[in-house]
């Protein structure tokens, strides 16, 4: 049984409860708009997710940064940077970057897709488990910004006449993927998973 069916709405911002039959449009405590569920949750999440899927391709193909050493430029893709870390025996840091910039974004894209499909087609799933997966996706999303921050630091620090690091075009695409998947996770309403379960 969902609180929505029992006639209660929780304010998304302050958590105050109000009764549906009062037909309030704003929260009596904090005055923000009341919604039983995030408005257009699935449409927004789907749109944001599709854009991130598309941007994920240039983010991995094009170089995120270019090391200019004595006139010759060496482009570095996301995967290339990790391989380089492994090659120079910095395995823990390599693993960290591997998790943050490859495993996290790709599993986020797949996980969000499955969540949206579950909610859209009203599949009978273990809602508890998928809510936890959703929580994990929402939690780890921000850590993918690691690569972008690292590039901003390197671009600033290594800027000499002999050697220069400049940011590549994939950096924009990758930053957009991270931001858009975070927004997709924020717009997805996990309560939709529970609404569809018949035997609660």
């Amino acid at each position: 049984m969902q609180a929505k069916e029992q006639g209660f709405i929780r304010c998304h911002d302050c958590g105050a409860l109000s009764e549906t039959h009062h037909k309030l449009s704003h929260c009596p405590r904090c005055d923000s708009l009341l919604h039983a569920r995030h408005p257009h949750s699935l449409q927004r999440a789907t749109a944001l997710l599709i854009s991130s899927f598309l941007l994920y391709i240039p983010a991995n193909i094009f170089p995120v940064m270019i090391v200019n050493q004595f006139g010759t430029g060496e482009p570095n893709t996301i995967a290339g940077g990790i391989v380089e870390l492994f090659d120079s025996d910095m395995i823990p840091i390599g693993l960290l970057v591997l998790v943050a910039s490859i495993l996290v974004p790709s599993s986020k894209l797949i996980g969000m897709s499955v969540l949206i499909l579950c909610a859209h087609f009203r599949w009978q799933i273990n809602a508890c488990r998928w809510t936890k997966i959703y929580r994990a996706i929402a939690f780890v999303g921000r850590w993918s910004m690691l690569d972008i921050f690292m590039i901003s630091i390197l671009v600033d620090l290594v800027n000499f006449s002999g050697i220069q690091i400049i940011a590549g075009s994939a950096a924009t695409a990758f930053a957009a993927v991270v931001i858009l998947t975070m927004l997709a996770a924020e717009n997805f309403d996990p309560r939709l998973l529970w609404d569809n379960q018949q035997n609660l």
Partner: peptide
């Protein structure tokens, strides 16, 4: 009273 209740924000359980 309504303040004696709470709703889970992620699964909507009263």
């Amino acid at each position: 009273p309504i303040t004696d209740y709470d709703i889970c924000p992620e699964c909507d359980l009263l």
